[in-house]
Amino acid sequence: MSVDLRPTRNGGPPKAAEPQDPRRSWRSRLARFDLKASPYIFISPFYLVFLVFGAFPLLYTLWVSLHDWGLASGTRKWVGLDNYSYLLGDEDFWHAVVNTIGIFVLSTVPQLLLALFLANALNRRMRSPTLFRIGMVAPLITSTAAVAIVFTQLFDRDFGFVNWGLDLVGIGAIDWQGNRGWSWVAISAMVNWRWIGYNALIYLAAMQAIPKDLYEAASIDGASRIRQFWQITVPMLRPTIIFTVIISTIGGLQLFTEPVLFSVGTPNRMDGGPVHQFQTVTMYMFDNAFGHDRYGYGATVAWALFLLIIVFSLLNFLFVRRTGGTK
């Protein structure tokens, strides 16, 4: 049965299909609407904000990436997938991907392991626990730029504190900026220093939710502390570990400020060293979009990074689920 909602020719209201008490119908309809729509309205602010600041930029970036687009020169030409096919053969891009993954591995793995041990230590009974726990987040509240500048000076080739120390113990100075592998280590040191405390705090919170009787039972059975850590604590933390791994993956693959500020030897800071020793994908993206007037190609790199992060998050998720599980 269909209802004709079109106004009649003489402008009158459409004829109702069934005669009803108008007041009752209005109320019941309102109640039905409330029941069905209210939940959506309550959660809508998030989606609206996401639509404006998440989905729209994402799709707009895709649109930009299909153009030869220059912000400074004003060129704007549709090129379809040309940027993407160039990207696949772009050595500099893949070089940046390798750098990013290298720095990501060097920072994330020690970071999460150390955070786990640290949280375990903090979970013991100790004096003034609050002091130590708050001390953990101190690096997090210092500005990234300040951290990066100080660390860059510590790792200075000629006058840096680290090289002075290495010299003292007879190892000899390292060219932290010039050597690709060592530059990764130096940048990872900044990332680790900053984020270990944060992750430790998250692990600590999760650890405190583990029932104490599990440990008591294990103690009675004669399990050592190390055994308890690996057999009780780690499995019980699995969801938390998955969370931190994914957050670290997203952050690690988007690493930007630290390598940019570490890049003190070249005129263009986005280069990450003269032969791009530590240029990350985000630096390459920024350099193309805003440094070299290739806004379209920069957007292409951004989309490639987006896909890369999804792939890595999935891999990590599967990996952690497999190894951390007790099932």
Partner: peptide, 10 residues
Amino acid sequence: NVLIAVGQGK
């Protein structure tokens, strides 16, 4: 960058 890399031995 190429000239700087020569100086770095790269």
